[in-house]
C-alpha cells in the first residue's frame, strides 16, 4: 500500500513536471524543437508498469494538458489516449527492445502523434503549422534514452530507500 502510494506520487509528479516542461517558455527559434514531454513520460510509465497508466488516466492527463495549453479541448486527450493505447498494445515487445530500437519506436509513436495532430487541426480549420513542426519527434526520440535512464534511476533509488 505504501509502495503503491509512493509510486503514485512519483508518477503524478513526473506528469506535472512534464506539463510544466511543455509550458516552459522558450525563444521562438527553439520552440519548434521542444519535445512533447507528457507523451514521453506517459510512454515511459506505460512501458514500465502495467497498472499505473490506463486509457482513462491518459485521457485525464490529456484533458489537463488541454486546459493548460491546447487549441481544442479534447485534442491532447485524444492524442495521448491513442498513444497510450498503442504503447499498451505493443508493450510486451517494446519493453525488451534494445535502447536504439526503443528510441526508433518512440520516434514512430511521436510521428504518429504529429500526424493525428495535423488531422485534427485540419478538421478544425486551423492553419497548418510550419515544416519545423516535424522536428519535435526527432528531438523526442533523441531525448528518450536519457529520459528513460533518468526515470529508471529515480525509481531504483526510491525502491532502495524502501528496502
Amino acid at each position: 500500500m505504501n509502495r503503491q502510494r509512493v509510486r503514485a506520487i512519483v508518477f503524478w509528479s513526473t506528469v506535472v513536471l512534464s506539463l510544466l516542461l511543455m509550458l516552459l517558455p522558450l525563444p521562438q527559434s527553439v520552440m519548434a524543437f521542444k519535445p512533447y514531454w507528457p507523451a514521453l513520460v506517459l510512454i515511459y510509465w506505460a512501458l514500465e508498469s502495467n497498472d499505473v497508466v490506463s486509457l482513462g488516466v491518459a485521457f485525464a492527463i490529456g484533458l489537463g494538458a488541454d486546459v493548460i495549453d491546447g487549441i481544442l479541448l479534447g485534442e491532447q486527450a485524444l492524442r495521448l489516449t491513442v498513444l497510450v493505447f498503442i504503447v499498451l498494445r505493443f508493450r510486451a515487445r517494446l519493453r525488451f527492445f534494445p535502447m536504439w530500437q526503443q528510441a526508433l519506436a518512440v520516434l514512430a509513436l511521436l510521428a504518429n502523434d504529429r500526424i493525428i495532430d495535423l488531422i485534427l487541426r485540419s478538421f478544425a480549420g486551423y492553419p497548418l503549422p510550419p515544416l519545423s513542426f516535424a522536428a519535435a519527434p526527432l528531438v523526442g526520440a533523441v531525448v528518450w534514452p536519457f529520459l528513460f535512464l533518468l526515470l529508471d534511476d529515480v525509481r531504483a533509488r526510491l525502491r532502495a530507500h524502501e528496502a
Partner: peptide, 26 residues
Amino acid sequence: AGTLRLIVYLAIASVLMVLDHRGHWM
C-alpha cells in the same frame, strides 16, 4: 476491451472537440 475503451475515449474526445470548436469553451 482495450479497443472498446479506446473507441469510447476517442468518441468523448471528438465530441469535446466539436463542442469546443462550436462553443469556444476552452
